[in-house]
């Protein structure tokens, strides 16, 4: 989500100085910090101490692969409902960081 939302919504963070991730998309880089929030509620599900990626060059919050990776999710766009639960599946291989927009990641420490 946009890093500005932390201040706009007065969202307290559980941890400080978490690692940042540098993303490069179409040769334009940006830093996304990892922020741990007290809880994230979607529908009737609440996850405590949830890690969220915040970045300064995005303007919308979105449910990304971090949300989908360990869940079974049914997106019914026809009837405007989404259903989800934790997946029973066995973890697959880590993958190759393949995305439509060519990207590469690097982790840095924030002093």
């Amino acid at each position: 989500m946009p890093v500005g939302w932390l201040a706009d919504y007065h969202i307290p963070l559980v941890k400080k100085d978490e690692k940042s991730e540098v993303r490069f998309n179409l040769n334009e880089g940006y830093i996304s910090n990892i922020a741990t929030v007290e809880n994230l509620t979607i529908g009737d599900d609440t996850e405590k101490n949830r890690k969220i990626k915040v970045a300064d060059k995005i303007y919308e919050g979105s449910l990304g692969l971090d949300f989908f990776a360990d869940k079974v999710v049914l997106v019914d766009a026809v009837n405007s409902r989404m259903y989800f639960r934790k997946s029973d599946g066995v973890s697959q291989d880590p993958g190759h960081n393949l995305h439509f927009e060519t990207s590469k990641n690097a982790n840095i420490d924030v002093k």
């Binding site: 307290p12 994230l40 509620t41 449910l63 692969l65």
Partner: peptide, 20 residues
């Protein structure tokens, strides 16, 4: 769009991109 609350603050995740 999906409505969500982070630490009690209501906001909308405006897309479901299934993308990091």
């Amino acid at each position: 769009e999906v409505a969500a609350r982070i630490s009690g603050r209501k906001m909308h995740f405006s897309s479901i991109p299934i993308w990091i």
